[in-house]
Design a protein around this nucleic acid. Sequence first.
RNA 1: GCCUACGUAGCUCAGUGGUAGAGCACUUCCUUGGUAAGGAAGAGGUCGCCGGUUCAACCCCGGCCGUAGGCUCCA
Length: 650
Amino acid sequence: MSKITITLPDKSTRSYDVGITPLEIAESIGPRLAQDTFAASINGELSDATVPITSDAKVSLYTGSSPEGHEVLLHSAAHLMAQAVKSLWPNSQVTIGPAIENRFYYDFDFDGTFSPEDLEKIENKMREISEENLPVSRQEMSRNDAIKLFKGIGEDYKVEIIEQIDSADNISVYSQGDFTDLCRGPHVPFTGKIKHFKLLTSSGAYWRGDEKNKMLQRIYGTVFSTKKELKEYLNYLEEAKKRDHRKLGKELEIYTFDDEVGPGLPLWLPNGGIIIDELEALAKEVESRHGYQRVRTPHLTKGDLYKRSGHLDLYKDAMYPAMDVDGTEYFVKPMNCPHHHKIYDASPKSYRDLPYRISEYGTCYRYEKSGQLFGLMRVRSMQMNDAHIYCSNDEFEAEFMDVCQMYLEYFDIFGIDKYEMRLSLHDPAELGKKYIDEPKLWIQTEDVVRNALKNGNINFVEIPGEAAFYGPKIDVQVWSAIGKEFTLATNQVDFAIPKRFNLTYTDENGSEQTPLCIHRAPLSTHERFIGFLIEHYGGDFPLWLSPTQVIILPVSEKTHEYAAEVESNMNACGIRVKIDDRPEKIGAKIRHSELSKIPVMAIVGEKEAEENTVSIRRRIIGDQGAIPIDQLLENLKSEIKQRSLPHRES
RNA sequence: GCCUACGUAGCUCAGUGGUAGAGCACUUCCUUGGUAAGGAAGAGGUCGCCGGUUCAACCCCGGCCGUAGGCUCCA
């Protein structure tokens, strides 16, 4: 038999018989590797591990720990689930079942809904099939044969899908045991590779995502190549649930919703009010250091302003309906930019006035569709950490960099270790339609932004076709302490709207110019940002943000007087302090304070009263022993002033 | 907006065609206790809202409001 040469990713080469499969290559290297090989790539193309190789090739073997291998495993688990469902309910029909990040799903045409008991049944069936270790085989066939096949087994959705595939393309079909599915693949070689899985939830989903179509039943699940990874992922889901801002926000009395007020309209409770005050104080401090001036604008405005800005054309559906005031249409404001433009325009500007930076925690109202509302993350009233920078073309790069630096400053303060900026670019094909028709300006601005990001060493990716209609956009993704992803803020570069508002400045030569405008909101909205912070910190806010910073716990009534003395000392230092003077034992008071996630417990008994000290117990850290009051006050003041991060559990 | 599920005390939840219950929290009393729950008593509800069926509805039916998951990831 003739030989072929296989080149592995480490550039080593091996000689094999023609027709060798990636799985056999894995076996020749080691049984352990063969066990872990889920898929392969042959000359860069992802494929099954059981495909025979007929000529010299570059081959990579993908194990479950590689992203490619994991994706194949997820996809194969979706098939395994479909097989289990078909075996339990032969009348159900399969539709589509892809892999998504860390999870998979499959949509079924199924009579009724899947109950949690059904999911358990399906999971047990999956386990059975996995143990049978059925070989998974791929078969290619013509379009007509495929249509015949799926018509024959009563899979109408598959027939519909095939009918839409280009007739020139080959159709591939995968089989395991008595289950056959239309699929591009690749898949794991045996069902036994799919071991560590868990079904998560079921829900309705429309066929092809269109509400005019039939409602299908979707089941989500997850799978990993090792038990450990599965367990870690399930722990993560559980931890994320514990940190859910809707749960903690209620428990910690940060905000609430009320039916009579309306959906998506949060009420900030006193604890939330404190957090907001602290965030605004931080923003004022940082912005004034960066040369911003604070402004204030009304919540209500005539419709003409939004006609001019273009918002009424583009976003009318997302705005609250107009109200008639003395025969004129007024709207509650969906964004602050038009008002800021008017503030710029309130007096003539010269190049000496630029960059002109104005900021405001502006309140906006947006009519989000009811189904889109989600805790604090998607609301209908919000206060945005908004600002607009008007500058000349020459100043632009420096201004843009300064905004980026501000982001990094904030990330540092809040302990955000992982972020990504997504530079959304325009699509030249959509010029004049989705995007303002200024091809040269687009390219020019995008280049400047890209260079600024590169020069500033900012972690970013480029996304074509997602820009705002008036300029490139930078979305900021951040990851919380447990690795949950959030979209926080978007920045936009605007080279179009200032013209619409006839904004001008006089340059050095006395001629009139139009400024560029940068929209920025690093701290997002109070709603979204505090929602994020709750989850990021798991409710354990850093001292400077904690609604209650210190709770004084008198050991018995004998020290109530001393406790009051300590309290007034702390009050005098501006520390937010409370006393728990209930007739409870100290253990109960500590428990109560721990559950309220108060960062500092100051325990005062007779010993402390005599020595003019308090015993400190810090959350997460534990007992810190006795400390003189003066020293404690200094420590706390400095920790608050520096906005130190909280200690994290590890 | 659409689909499905859910809505009972401040919170978490049980419950029945004959107008309601637990635990925690709250109030009072007893206990004066040293690093995650001491004891007792009390108070607290138009069972989301509106309508219908019924002698009788928190329960059954319909509508509305709200919340959650999903509807975007596409063989």
